[in-house]
Design a protein around this nucleic acid. Structure first.
Length: 504
RNA sequence: GUCUUGUUAGCUCAGCUGGUAGAGCAGUUCCCUUUUAAGGAAUUGGCCGUUGGUUCGAAUCCAACACAGGACACCA
């Protein structure tokens, strides 16, 4: 029996007793004509009535009992539904003596009930429902956590999100906002004539990002498949095919570490826009943020933990190299050669791989000394080419990619660039990524010959971008951990320890 | 992957330098017809994360392991 602790057994017994009384503890025969919020809104004016009640009104509201206060022959309960909480009052007289006695014994906090009755205002001034009929909708077998402190254990909150939602009302708001963000973004792109598409999640060759993939096996085909690390290469094939503006909002999977900003599966929007440039993307991104803030009714300066993020000005644009100099405080001379950068890092007691290229070393410097300082929205542009294997080179500097990343609150939120559409160049970039992979960087990009062949047919000048929806939601909901914006974040399984020594 | 802190009743937490486990809420039994974490009286409930070790004796000391929070590393 799965429910075997003393409290659960007690409640199972109560459910049995209810059945014996002819009250199905799991009935479906419940209809309501109002909600906790609507009931309060509809009857707000009864405070002006003489008796502060209106016996001619009648509504049925259903919800979970969160508080229950018995007082001999009467009782108050707070019931909660999707919309909020409503206090209900019932007594021996209002629902009948026998049923009142049974309710007192058999119905408790956690149970879901429906109540029918009229609005009134209590002595302490709370608009409440005076119950005439009380029905049990669902008997709760497992008791709820404590009513005052609630559920605070983070592990339990993540593992049992349903319980977290019952106990921590605020978290539901966060996930409503998340849903709204996705919906608003979808709308935004549709209105700009982007076409929403769905490309494969199981890839024969993992591509579109530098990351380690999850591997799975396709039985019928007898081949390995990789959960996608990015939809990028498929979306660009669609641009080759003739769609000129596409987007996809869905999950990507990366087989890497987890922390406050990384979950192994995460949601991204990627969009590709033919005959546009990465400067157009930066404009579009700012427009999108303005739209989100407006629709979510957020101010232009929003709090995030101990800091404030200012969206009121045009986002700052700064080149990668200048960011290292101006924000990282690194001298131009230091940045000139591999040797001087290595010396700088060693001087700072940082562990570095001497084999890293200058571009990779820049990346290291950026992560160490710049990223965390980018609080207000900032576009960092013009990235080293070797960390941007799918981005177009600048015409006047072969070492720089026409690429940007958007940073907010020290986190990377978006990544966009002019797509590399020279098939020969792309082939060579893949080849040099393979070399990096051979040298031991498991996250280097794979060769995707079919993608290069697609480019062979001609990819129009295109700019493309990805935005991390989880991180975006974190910023807009003021949550510090990605786990607080993912309904069911990845957790290790808890396994029962059975390795007790056997007698010999 | 590394470091660090934690794991005690259903939940939130005490438990000191080792001496056989406590509180509040919830539950159970009573009293109470307008309460707001309602109140009053009594009371049930513990493989002290797991496995070993040290010791006459371990929730407490030591080790390994598991899981979690945080930091770092990798990445978005």
């Amino acid at each position: 029996m799965i429910f075997n602790n003393q409290y659960e057994l007690q409640r199972v017994e109560k459910a049995e007793l209810l059945k014996e009384l002819g009250k199905n503890p799991y009935t479906h025969n419940i209809k309501r004509d109002s909600t906790t919020k609507k009931f309060k809104d509809d009857h707000e004016q009864i405070k002006n009535l003489e008796n502060m009640r209106d016996k001619n009104k009648e509504n049925t509201v259903a919800g979970r009992i969160k508080f229950l206060r018995h007082m001999g022959k009467a009782a108050f309960a707070k019931i909660e539904d999707d919309q909020g909480v409503l206090q209900v009052y019932f007594s021996k007289e209002s629902i009948g003596e026998d049923w009142f006695k049974s309710v007192k014994k058999l119905i408790e906090v956690g149970d879901i009930i429906s109540v029918t009755g009229f609005p009134f205002i209590t002595k302490t001034g709370e608009l409440s429902l005076h119950v005439k009929t009380l029905k049990l909708a669902t008997k709760s077998i497992t008791p709820l956590p404590e009513k005052f402190h609630g559920l605070t254990n983070k592990e339990l909150r993540y593992r049992k999100r349903y319980l977290d939602m019952i106990m921590n009302y605020k978290i539901k708001e966060t996930f409503r906002t998340r849903s709204k963000i996705v919906s608003l973004i979808r709308n935004f792109f549709e209105e700009k004539n982007f076409l929403e598409v769905e490309t494969p999640m199981m890839h024969p060759i993992p591509g579109g990002a530098n990351a380690k993939p999850f591997v799975t096996h396709h039985n019928a085909l007898g081949v390995e498949r990789y959960l996608r690390i990015a939809p990028e290469l498929y979306l660009k094939r669609l641009i080759v095919g003739g769609f000129e503006a596409v987007f996809e909002i869905n999950r990507n999977f990366r087989n890497e570490g987890m922390d406050l900003t990384h979950n192994p599966e995460f949601t991204m929007i990627e969009f590709y826009w033919a005959y546009h440039t990465y400067y157009d993307l930066m404009e579009l991104t700012q427009e999108m943020f303005a739209m989100l803030l407006k629709q979510l009714k957020l101010p232009k300066k929003i709090p995030y933990g101990d800091i404030e993020i200012d969206f009121s000005k045009k986002f700052k644009i700064l080149s990668y190299k200048n960011a290292l100099i101006e924000i990282g405080g690194i001298s131009i001379e230091t940045l000139e050669t591999k040797k001087s950068v290595l010396a700088y890092l060693k001087d700072k007691d940082e562990e570095v791989d001497e084999k890293l290229s200058l571009g990779k070393l820049y990346e290291k410097l950026f992560d160490l000394y710049v990223e965390k300082k980018l609080i207000n929205p900032t576009f960092i542009i013009d990235y080293p080419i070797e960390i941007s294997p799918l981005a177009r080179k600048k015409d006047d500097d072969q070492n720089i990619a026409e690429r940007f990343e958007l940073f907010i609150a020290g986190h990377e939120i978006a990544n966009g660039f002019n797509e590399l559409n020279d098939p020969i160049d792309q082939y060579n970039r893949f080849t040099s990524q393979l070399k990096i992979k051979d040298e031991g960087d498991g996250s280097a990009h794979e060769m995707d010959e079919d993608y290069v062949r697609a480019l062979g047919y001609g990819l129009p000048p295109t700019a493309g971008q990805g935005i991390g929806i989880d991180r975006l939601t974190m910023i807009l909901t003021n949550e510090q951990s990605i786990r607080d914006v993912i309904l069911f974040p990845a957790m290790k399984p808890v396994h029962v320890n059975n390795n007790k020594k056997e007698d010999i």
